[in-house]
Design a binder for these strands. Structure first.
Length: 321
DNA sequence: AACTCCATCAACCGCTGGTAT
DNA sequence: AATACCAGCGGTTGATGGAGT
């Protein structure tokens, strides 16, 4: 017996959200915390389906989201993670705490994919110029023999890991994962002149309101906004401030859109990540030292197949076997 | 000025996995 | 064990605005 689609009901509004709708949603979430989305339309009077409410919150209204203005470091991180994980945008976005999966996905499709294509073409042209005699041979290397598959995979993963490490290292402050997370609101990056700005300002005020006063209900959704990022509410006053002051701590909200349990499962084969994911699932603010040490630890990935599960998983996804 | 084309991104849709009953 | 429900994910679409002609 199939399930009826949630958005087929009559009277359900679709299309862009109005400031009034945003405000109603934000007010509700502020009071009850994110979750139980099914109850949101009924309790707010919004003529939207629960799914639409959740998406609007997670992709736009949620505090701590930075929109647009991807830095070079973020570009590199996304490119490397995409090579490593494939189109698992939620997983990739989980490494960029200020970005949503939708944002990363859109940015990949509209910018990075083309950028990579251009770079590849330039590289191929350069190769042709450097090796005029080899022009008659195919430009792409032949696929490795089946027997060498695992060897190639491990080499590729080693390269990907090294590249990821480089991307993370360059300017930690520019990437929320390692650095201080800057305060921004969803609308701050809009910067578009004209009429669109009116709504952007409204959205910003909504966000500012959240940043000023956000706090989930005690015992249910204990989050707080620190420096524009949702973090677990501190056990004692001032704890959030100390957390925000630490440059090497990952801010994580146990009840936000990120799915710690899924992340834990996805990263389970990779022990250092799995430990972090378990802690995150428990709502603990996770220091990045273990992830960093894994990234910075030379030879770990190549010599001991401790992460084979993750590697094979990525390979299966990318190469469809 | 009017029109077309293209890029961007918010939002929708369909599907999957997890969980409660 | 079977079913129904819910949240989340990834692919796709459609509205919008800017650039080019």
């Amino acid at each position: 017996m199939g399930r009826p689609p949630c958005c087929d009901k009559e009277g359900v509004k679709k299309g862009p959200w109005t400031p009034e709708e945003d405000l109603a949603l934000v007010s509700y979430v502020q009071e009850h915390g994110p979750g139980n989305w099914r109850a949101v339309p009924a309790n707010t009077g919004l003529m939207r389906c629960s799914k639409s409410c959740r998406l609007r919150w997670t992709n736009y209204l949620r505090p701590g989201i930075r929109r647009g203005g991807f830095s070079d470091q973020e570009d590199r991180l996304i490119v490397h993670l995409q090579a490593l994980l494939g189109n698992r945008w939620a997983a990739i976005a989980s490494y960029l705490p200020e970005r949503t999966d939708n944002d990363v996905k859109n940015y990949w499709n509209t910018h990075l994919k083309k950028k990579l294509l251009v770079e590849q073409q330039q590289q191929q042209q350069q190769q042709l110029l450097n090796q005029p005699r080899a022009a008659s041979t195919p430009s792409l290397p032949p696929p490795p023999p089946k027997g060498q598959w695992e060897l190639k995979l491990q080499t590729d993963i080693g390269l990907a890991r090294r590249a990821l490490r480089d991307a993370l290292r360059v300017d930690a402050a520019a990437v929320g994962l390692l650095g201080t997370i800057t305060t921004t609101s969803p609308a701050l990056s809009s910067g578009d002149p004209g009429a669109a700005q009116a709504y952007a300002l409204t959205a910003r005020s909504v966000s500012s309101m959240l940043e000023a006063g956000w706090a989930g209900p005690a015992g249910k959704q204990s989050c707080a906004v620190v420096g524009g990022v949702v973090v677990p509410a501190p056990a004692t006053p001032g704890a959030a401030e100390s957390a925000s002051g630490s440059s090497s701590e990952l801010t994580e909200c146990s009840g936000s859109i990120s799915s710690p349990s899924k992340r834990a499962a996805a990263l389970a084969p990779c022990q250092p990540f799995a430990r972090e994911a378990e802690k995150a699932a428990a709502g603990v603010v996770v220091p990045l030292s273990e992830i960093e040490s894994w990234l910075l630890e030379d030879g770990c990935g190549e010599q001991k197949p401790a992460h084979d599960g993750l590697l094979l998983d990525a390979a299966r996804h990318n190469f469809g076997f």
